[in-house]
Amino acid sequence: MSKLDPRVFATLRDHVHRSLRAAIIGGRFAFGQKLNERHLAEQLGVSTTPIKEALRQLESDGLVETQPRRGVIVRFNAIWAEEMILARAALESMIAHLAAKRREPLEGTALTATVNLMHEATDSGDVDSLILLNETFHDQIHVASRCAYLGKLIERQQFYDAGTRRIIHSDPAERKKAFGEHAAIAAAITQGNADLAERQMRDHVVRSGETYLAIVFGNKES
């Protein structure tokens, strides 16, 4: 047999890490639950090797820990999630602040175009498009901010997955509220109002994070 291309292995490892991370953050594994490598490998259709690699990365992320005689245990809970939300709010708001100061005219135009598409998707209830447009919206702000360092930090603060976003955006009232917030953030950035963009982004991330907490954890404390 020929040797595997290392890039293929890296891609598989990263895919497994993202899948398990999304499952933990999406509440599909309970706090304190033991993760069985063989069962996870069977569920994902992979060998245990990328599972082991992914679990080591998740431990580095702080989402799981290895305990003597117990194995790998989920450490993610509502308290941890709230901290992630607040950390993301701080980072995203500063990125929005800098995007308002550093954006190029064409970047502002592109952001406005994305908001217009979000408006159409909100009115039509096209949840699939809204999920993609939401990611595009935040990506455009990250690019406009020129924040390489903060951009790296924000990658560790992604607590939504597509399933959670789908639940959130399936509510017409939530869709309307989120669109209003996105439109206001885009306007502040394109107008160069850094302080307003920062405040609106922080408020948006915190509010949407509270919605996530209610969906995933309800009134549970952990």
Rank of each mutant, 00 (worst) to 15 (best):
D61A: 08
N77R: 01
G27K: 05
V74F: 11
Q140Y: 02
E135R: 02
E104M: 00
A78E: 08
N219C: 07
N193S: 13
Q158D: 15
G45W: 09
T190S: 14
L63A: 11
L111E: 05
I85T: 06
Q158L: 14
S60Y: 14
L55Q: 02
I185V: 11
V16D: 07
D61K: 00
F31C: 06
A197E: 02
A23C: 03
F179Y: 13
R75N: 11
W80G: 09
L35R: 06
Q200W: 08
R202F: 15
T136H: 08
A186T: 01
S124G: 05
F76N: 05
G218I: 00
N77A: 02
S222Y: 10
L133Q: 03
G32P: 06
G218V: 00
N219R: 04
T211C: 06
K176Q: 10
H97S: 10
L130G: 06
A194L: 02
F9C: 02
L20G: 09
A178F: 12
T190E: 12
H17W: 13
E59K: 03
Y149K: 01
I85D: 12
W80A: 08
L91W: 07
E59F: 06
A78R: 09
L130D: 05
I141C: 05
T164E: 10
E92R: 14
A23K: 04
R70W: 05
H97Y: 15
H17F: 15
I95S: 09
K152M: 10
I131G: 10
E181A: 14
S129A: 12
E221V: 01
F179K: 03
R102Q: 15
N36M: 10
P50W: 04
A90Q: 04
H138N: 07
E104Q: 01
S170K: 01
A113W: 10
R70F: 11
V74N: 06
R88H: 09
M84S: 14
A110P: 08
H169S: 02
Y149Q: 09
I154N: 14
A183Q: 10
D161V: 11
A113H: 09
H97G: 07
P105V: 00
P6G: 11
L130K: 01
E181R: 15
M84N: 15
Q158R: 05
V216R: 02
T112E: 12
E181M: 14
S60P: 08
A173T: 01
E83H: 15
A99H: 06
T49E: 11
T122Y: 08
R38P: 07
D14G: 15
S47A: 03
L58Q: 05
A10T: 01
G26V: 00
L12A: 09
L213S: 02
A30D: 12
L111Q: 03
R102S: 12
G209M: 07
N77H: 04
I25M: 09
I51Y: 06
V205L: 13
R56Q: 01
T114K: 03
E155C: 10
S170C: 05
D161I: 12
F179D: 03
I51C: 04
